[in-house]
Design a protein around this nucleic acid. Structure first.
Lengths: 152, 152
DNA sequence: TGAACATATTTGCTTTGACAAATATACTTT
DNA sequence: AAAGTATATTTGTCAAAGCAAATATGTTCA
């Protein structure tokens, strides 16, 4: 009875799905914003630029881990973004295996445009949560993430 | 400076990313569970079966909307699941355009196995949240979802 | 009724991303 | 220093998913 009778309202049953739905909406909204500005950028590419703009130059594999992207896929995304002139592959000073990916001037200029989109989407997404709730949601998600990663 | 100094702790900045990371971990964990049982099922296929098991027969497009999957992709997933004998495409009584997708006996039997995997992963994911917090997380996510969908 | 439009499914085409192999470089241990 | 192991990047290959077009059926409205 416990599980069956509560089926359609039990949180546990749909956390995975729910996360998928929310994320899909955010991606959709974000890509809509980008398209509306006439920018031809995927959500993945947006994330890469955001990371670089926020944290500065880093290697391709750091970047890949940060956005949960396969190394091979990262290479190809970097190809595209480099071709569009938004970033540069430089040599890493300490490690000759690695690259140092850095934004070009065009990349930095682009980011100033993206900040708006980013802001609008996240504000819209969280508009029904007050400040404290937003912090709490973030905290819960972090805790879930750690629980999943530290298997014990 | 303002953005730079706060970058690594501002919640709003990473909600999109964070959702992606959590979801990726859940998918990984779930596929691990499935593989451990010797089942050759993708996370997407698991979601389709789950939906059918929980809510009963429905059309392909309802199913597609529920798991946030493209119609074309759904057709091909159904091909696979039908070939494996887990579901059946029947005619829809009221709408001759549509299908009525229903689980076979084998599909229902399979689901009894999947229930465990599902349970284990979700329990592990939420083990650092108490009952009230789990409910609250779910509530927050629903509110974010609605905020994103009802654009106004 | 009939025309216009909307929805359900399938198929073809293209892009994205995962996985594995290849190569280059770093680290560790003996 | 040599050997063995680990990491960074690139490339090839494949499966999954998105988009568009085709077809069939339903719905609305003049």
């Amino acid at each position: 009875m416990s599980s069956e009778s509560l089926a359609f309202t039990t949180p546990k049953e749909s956390l995975g799905v729910l996360l998928g739905l929310v994320r899909a909406e955010i991606v959709r909204a974000m890509e809509g914003e980008l398209a509306a500005k006439g920018l031809n950028l995927s959500f993945t590419q947006f994330l890469i630029l955001k990371r670089l703009a926020r944290l500065g130059p880093m290697s391709a594999s750091e970047l890949a881990r940060a956005v949960e992207l396969d190394g091979g896929a990262m290479t190809r995304q970097l190809d595209q973004l480099e071709r569009k002139g938004y970033l540069r592959r430089c040599r890493h000073e300490q490690d000759r295996r690695a690259l140092r990916i850095e934004l070009t001037d065009a990349g930095n200029t682009l980011w100033t445009q993206l900040v708006d989109c980013n802001e609008r989407v996240l504000t819209a997404a969280q508009r029904s949560l007050d400040e404290a709730e937003q912090v709490q949601l973030h905290d819960y998600l972090e805790r879930v993430l750690h629980a999943l990663r530290d298997k014990n």
